[in-house]
Design a protein around this nucleic acid. Structure first.
Length: 764
DNA sequence: GAATAAATTGTTTTT
DNA sequence: CAATTTATTC
């Protein structure tokens, strides 16, 4: 069989280059998955490579599954090719080898939420103020250390005495690492960095995997971080048969440590590398492609690449500027309903957004319109409280040293063991340097008084679970946990609709466990937990179900739809507020790449929508239309509105609401509140006229009025609940809000958003 | 000492 | 708005 029949010249060139390093720069929609699968088939069919020697690394489990089935479809022996994500590859290696690094192979995999809890514990224990060292930033800082394979010792050595702040962060990193080890737990970043460490410290183990993985392929290479780079380098160094595929314009995980230099420097790092560019796009119409190109053009650091297509113009890109998030959502729902009437399928449509909360309004309107849809991301099924609770029991059974899980379930359902008791126990455990669960054996030393009876009962229950785990399957064990802990019982007693929903979710987990027992290669408890820890929501994406897909642009990477709606195209929303206040243009450029990814998901129709007024966690916010919309040429755009909507009516309604809400604000928010209202009106005026500055004069007048109203100026004394009293150093306009740089007494220098934080002036 | 009610505060994106 | 921290009641 000639597998190259359907490939174009560049695709063929990439698919037939088997030995030596190869970089495929694959623009969006240029058929890179096809190239990868054909390349694998080609290797196997020409008999030059055994399937067993091929490793393909993808970004999500879903992409892995898809590649596996596509390889199988074109080639009989495809089944023994190892296709997986970085994370699952590493887990499989670590389960076999991690004893070399002093861990037990039943290690727990902590997700982001678990590691945040552990970070908070570290802050507590070190007496570090969580206002000055926010746990989330600390978790991110620790993550970046690990991405770059900087150990606590290295970090400590490289930190000068004078850098007080960094020294504290390193202390947190040290303690966090120690706790992880003591808990026999690994976080996501550990999975990669410990594998690298294993390979570095044990060359013979590395050698084993090298001889196994003689041909390596990495998809989405632009999103790899330093540790992943190192892993790939170690594995491929000897034979040099490394093929990476990626697109620097689609690098959207910089915040997770992904280093765009990995792809930019590939030719330098792997000498003799062949480079193939795939520039013909087979996915989208010309209007869509031109829009994508004219947006991404505004970025500075890129490899030169110009996507082109020989398909037709297609329809123009729709632009809907709605008055509110509700109207925006109603527009999307109406538009999808209409396309359905015209004979389309629901599953041809996707609604994409920058952040998860933006799905809310759209969801509600879709429900109202009776349109079937699926939401991916946000709170995943496995993130629900009841599921996490129950899974924590299983994790604790699997790995009794897992203190994070122990603390989660010790009083769930309530059994009268409270915070004070656990604090005493933790203090004692820390003093004898033992995992928490182990000191349940020596309660008499821990000063917990009469609480020790309850603690002992808990311990005995866990022992029973342990023996259940030896004798029964995962589903039965789960049943035993649900019964003995009384978890379901308590929910039944609550007898609310919410509790009923939780019971249903738990039932779904039991069903999942049953299914797992029947189909898993190795139906152990550890394997079950591992599978749940590493699934992404998008992995369950089912293209066959006739439903509209709702997801973040991040999740949509690698997917394509006939018709795509990108909602929330507003400054501060997309690009995100964070990228706008950032000092460097780096973050904004990543937002722009994200816009590029979003736009290029569409095959035939793209609609961008924005809302003048958006309800964001209990507050109205007013933002201008996104710069990314403005970067698209008018030639490719057309305004679209709801079918049965009168334009004047819309304007009347929006002005009216704006003014009314201004009047009804409480009087105490004087200066700043007036400023905010004026700013809101100013923005909405600006947008009402298509953002084309018809109102230059009026806008300047408004600006002047604003400046008069602006209460904050450098030198002002202000108070904020969280940080106390401070002095304003700098005032800066940031979209609809005002950014103040304030020196707080005791808490140091902070950047504060005046409106959002409700900061107040102190009269002296 | 634990359970519950009230106050406060946070802003992305995910393996 | 919702999750988490802090104050109050049992």
């Amino acid at each position: 069989m000639n597998v190259h029949q359907t490939l174009n010249r560049a695709q063929h060139e990439a698919a037939s280059h088997i030995d030596g390093p190869l970089l495929v720069l694959a623009g969006a929609g240029s058929g890179k998955t096809k190239v990868l699968t054909h390349r694998i088939a080609n290797m196997i069919e020409t008999g030059s490579v055994a399937p067993f020697n091929i490793l393909a690394i993808t970004f999500t489990n879903k992409a892995a599954g898809e590649m596996r089935s596509r390889v199988n479809a074109i080639c009989r022996e495809g089944g023994s090719v190892w296709v997986s994500t970085f994370h699952s590859l590493c887990v499989r290696i670590l389960r076999r080898e991690i004893h070399n690094l002093g861990y037990d192979s039943s290690f727990t995999i902590l997700d982001a939420d678990d590691s945040l809890r552990l970070i908070k514990k570290c802050l507590d224990e070190l007496n570090i103020n969580d206002k000055m060292y926010p746990p989330k930033s600390m978790a991110a800082a620790v993550g970046r250390f690990k991405d770059q394979m900087i150990t606590p010792e290295m970090a400590s050595r490289d930190t000068p005495e004078s850098d007080f702040r960094m020294a504290n962060i390193v202390d947190i990193y040290k303690l966090y690492s120690r706790k992880l080890r003591q808990n026999n737990s690994l976080d996501f970043d550990d999975l990669i960095s410990l594998t690298v460490r294993l390979f570095t410290e044990y060359p013979d183990i590395l050698e084993g995997y090298r001889s196994r993985f003689r041909y390596i392929m990495v998809d989405e290479y632009q999103d790899t971080n330093a540790a992943q780079y190192e892993l790939v380098r170690l594995l491929s160094e000897r034979h040099g048969n490394l093929c990476v595929v990626g697109d620097d314009d689609q690098s959207i995980y910089g915040w997770r440590g992904a280093d765009i230099r990995n792809i930019l420097d590939f030719e330098k790092d792997f000498s003799g590398a062949k480079v193939v560019k795939l520039e013909q796009n087979y996915r989208s119409t010309r209007n869509i492609l031109e829009a994508a190109n004219s947006v991404i053009r505004n970025n500075s650091q890129r490899k030169h690449k110009q996507l082109w297509t020989d398909s037709g113009d297609g329809c123009k890109i729709g632009l809907n500027q709605a008055a509110s998030d509700r109207e925006e959502a109603a527009f999307v729902a109406g538009s999808i309903a209409k396309s359905r009437q015209d004979g389309g399928k629901y599953s041809d449509n996707a609604v994409l957004y920058r952040s998860n909360f933006l799905s809310r309004a759209v969801e509600e309107e879709l429900v109202k319109a009776g349109i079937p849809h699926r939401v991916f991301g946000g709170t995943r099924f496995y993130d629900r409280k009841e599921i996490r609770d129950v899974l924590a029991y299983l994790r604790l059974i699997n790995n009794p040293r897992d203190s994070v899980s122990l603390l989660r379930v010790i009083n769930v359902p309530r059994r009268g063991i409270g915070e004070v008791t656990m604090q005493k126990l933790e203090a004692y455990a820390a003093s004898v340097d033992k995992p928490l669960f182990e000191v349940f054996d020596e309660l008499e030393n821990a000063d917990v008084g009469r609480q020790s009876k309850k603690l002992r009962e808990f311990r005995e229950m866990m022992v029973r679970f342990h023996s259940d785990a030896m004798n029964y399957g995962v589903a039965e064990l789960l049943g035993s946990v649900l019964e003995q802990t009384g978890y379901i019982e308590e929910l039944k007693l609550e007898a609310t609709e919410e509790a009923q929903g939780r019971i249903e979710n738990i039932d779904a987990l039991v069903a999942k466990a049953l299914e797992f027992e029947q189909h898993a290669e190795e139906p152990t408890l550890a394997a079950f937990l591992e599978e749940l820890a590493l699934v992404a929501d998008i992995d369950s994406f089912d293209a066959d179900a006739d439903a509209v897909a709702l997801m973040t642009i991040h999740s949509s990477k690698g997917l394509e739809f006939d018709s795509v709606y990108i909602v929330g195209c507003e400054e501060g929303q997309f690009p995100s507020y964070r990228s706008l206040v950032s000092e460097t243009p780096k973050e904004l450029e990543e937002e722009r790449r994200l816009a590029y990814v979003g736009i290029t998901r569409a095959r035939r129709r793209l609609t961008l929508t924005s809302a003048f007024r958006r309800w964001v966690r209990g507050n109205d916010v007013y933002n201008r239309v996104s710069r990314f919309v403005r970067e698209i040429s008018d030639d490719n755009l057309e305004n679209v509105k709801m079918d049965n909507q009168r334009v004047d009516a819309k304007h009347d309604e929006s002005e009216d609401t704006t003014l009314k809400s201004a009047d009804s604000k409480p009087a105490e928010r004087t200066g700043i509140s007036r400023y905010a209202e004026i700013n809101k009106v100013r923005n909405s005026i600006d947008i009402s006229f298509g953002g084309k500055n018809y109102m230059q004069g009026a806008k300047r007048a408004a600006d002047a009025a604003t400046r008069e109203q602006l209460e904050f100026k450098p030198g002002d004394r202000v108070r904020l609940m969280k940080y106390g009293v401070g002095t304003v150093l700098d005032v800066k306009d940031a979209g609809a809000d005002t950014e103040l740089t304030v020196e707080f007494e005791g808490a140091g220098k902070k950047k504060i958003l005046a409106n959002l934080s409700k900061i107040k002036k102190v009269e002296e």
